[in-house]
């Protein structure tokens, strides 16, 4: 598909809807292996992000993502705030001056977002963090023509579920060492919602 401002805004809106209805669940996941605030953090941040982008007139997708980045950075806090903030900032930077955005350009943006998260979090794939979802999604999007919305959602979901069995070495869950196994990573779950929302937008706009 080709991306326009409407789709970018819809993405944030749909993500927010998913976050809000799963707020308690995200908090539960974080209670098991973290400090129990991930649902609160994400809900606070995306609520504001949606409020901002829904009420602003945008000329470019880059601007939508820039505002999203700014809001997330200043409202989420914790570990996930700077990471999601960085992700949207990187996407905004890659997509600057590109409107509408092609599939390939969007894949580049996600890849850059992933790199930003890795760098900011000093983490890599396999450490039971949101990177474990962003990585396969970025890979998947690079596949070019073949990408389908359903497949995207599946990829993200599978990646999220895989975090259940891995050992955490970054983030708060790392304190638990072996006890971190057996629980899905909260940040990977919120990232799954993000990509589930993306798939939804895609289905509608295709």
């Amino acid at each position: 598909m080709v991306w326009k401002v409407e789709q970018a805004v819809a993405w944030i809106e749909k993500t927010n809807a998913l976050i809000q209805s799963n707020k308690e669940y995200l908090t539960e996941l974080d209670q098991a292996i973290g400090d129990g605030d991930h649902g609160l953090n994400m809900s606070r941040g995306f609520q504001e992000a949606e409020a901002k982008v829904s009420s602003t007139d945008y000329d470019t997708i880059a601007d939508v993502f820039k505002d999203t980045a700014t809001v997330l950075m200043s409202k989420v806090g914790g570990a996930s705030g700077p990471l999601y903030g960085t992700a949207f900032l990187k996407m905004s930077m890659v997509l600057k001056g590109k409107d509408p955005v092609t599939q390939a350009e969007f894949a580049d943006a996600v890849e850059e977002a992933l790199n930003g998260i890795k760098q900011r979090g000093k983490a890599d794939q396999g450490e039971k963090t949101m990177i474990d979802v962003w990585h396969p999604v970025a890979d998947f999007l690079k596949n070019g023509q073949n990408v389908q919305a359903e497949k995207l959602e599946e990829t993200a979901q599978q990646a999220m579920e895989n975090t259940k069995d891995t050992l955490a070495t970054k983030g708060r869950a790392a304190y638990l060492q072996e006890r971190s196994r057996g629980h899905v990573d909260p940040g990977s779950t919120s990232s799954f919602y993000l990509f589930q929302a993306l798939a939804d937008v895609w289905k509608e706009g295709a």
Binding site: D35, G36, L40
Partner: peptide, 26 residues
């Protein structure tokens, strides 16, 4: 946490959690 309404973890009446973090991390 006020916004969460649920305790961060559960301990039995005779249990303690050794090595606790200051955010209730296990």
């Amino acid at each position: 946490i006020p916004g969460s309404g649920r305790p961060n973890f559960q301990l039995e009446d005779d249990e303690i959690e050794v090595g606790i973090g200051i955010h209730g991390e296990p």
